[in-house]
């Protein structure tokens, strides 16, 4: 599968938010994508990284050392701010409300996952429609494919990490079975694209 060229298809496209889903191998992939985003990056980035349900995670702490963005674990009812990297909390789904606040829930796990990527992506697609980019990266299950399709159907931009490069290719491949992404890119390309969409 060939990827559409960056420059042409991005021209004029701007989004208001980016949602990112990743699982096994995700920490490094995510580091590569956010490392060079500047502190004045305008968009909020909302991330589901699969983690075990119990116990605190240090995701927010780890990443605050890896990026100039503000980094937080998502809180219920929190207003979404630009230039901020939000991580879904272990054991809770993360969703977006119409009034641009975050919502947590303990609905059943989806694909054995809570937080689930599908849940975040679908609710974000509802709120932002075409003003949303969704990124699905390395991982060992099928969470996220349905969500990415929902984003695309709502007019948003679907971005999949090139499975050749992904540490675990199951998640990107599951997405490619369901949809033709707007961009199929290596991590470096994803990082560049996010800056272009700002």
């Amino acid at each position: 599968m060939s990827s559409p060229s960056l420059g042409s298809s991005v021209t004029g496209r701007r989004v208001d938010a980016v949602v990112i889903g990743t699982s096994a191998g995700g920490l490094e992939a995510l580091s590569a994508v956010v490392a060079d985003l500047p502190a004045d990056f305008r968009l909020p980035l909302l991330v589901v990284q699969h983690v075990p349900e119990s116990g605190p995670t240090q995701l927010a702490e780890i990443f605050s050392r890896k990026t100039a963005l503000r980094v937080r674990e998502a809180e219920d009812k929190e207003a979404i701010a630009g230039g901020t990297l939000y991580f879904a909390a272990p054991g809770y789904h993360l969703m977006i409300e119409q009034d641009l606040t975050l919502a947590l829930s303990q609905d059943d796990p989806v694909h054995y996952s809570r937080p689930s990527i599908d849940v975040l992506f679908e609710s974000a697609a509802d709120v932002w429609g075409e003003r949303l980019a969704g990124v699905l990266m390395t991982g060992a299950n099928e969470d996220g494919a349905a969500g990415l399709l929902a984003i695309q159907r709502a007019g948003g931009i679907a971005i999949v990490q090139d499975p050749e490069e992904a540490e675990v290719d199951i998640m990107p491949l599951a997405a490619l079975q369901r949809l033709v992404p707007d961009h199929l890119l290596p991590l470096r390309g994803i990082a560049e694209l996010l800056r272009a969409l700002e």
């Binding site: 969703m95 409300e97 829930s105």
Partner: peptide, 9 residues
């Protein structure tokens, strides 16, 4: 109620 999770259900 919070809309997003209610809608899902």
């Amino acid at each position: 109620y919070s809309g997003a999770s209610l809608k899902r259900r």
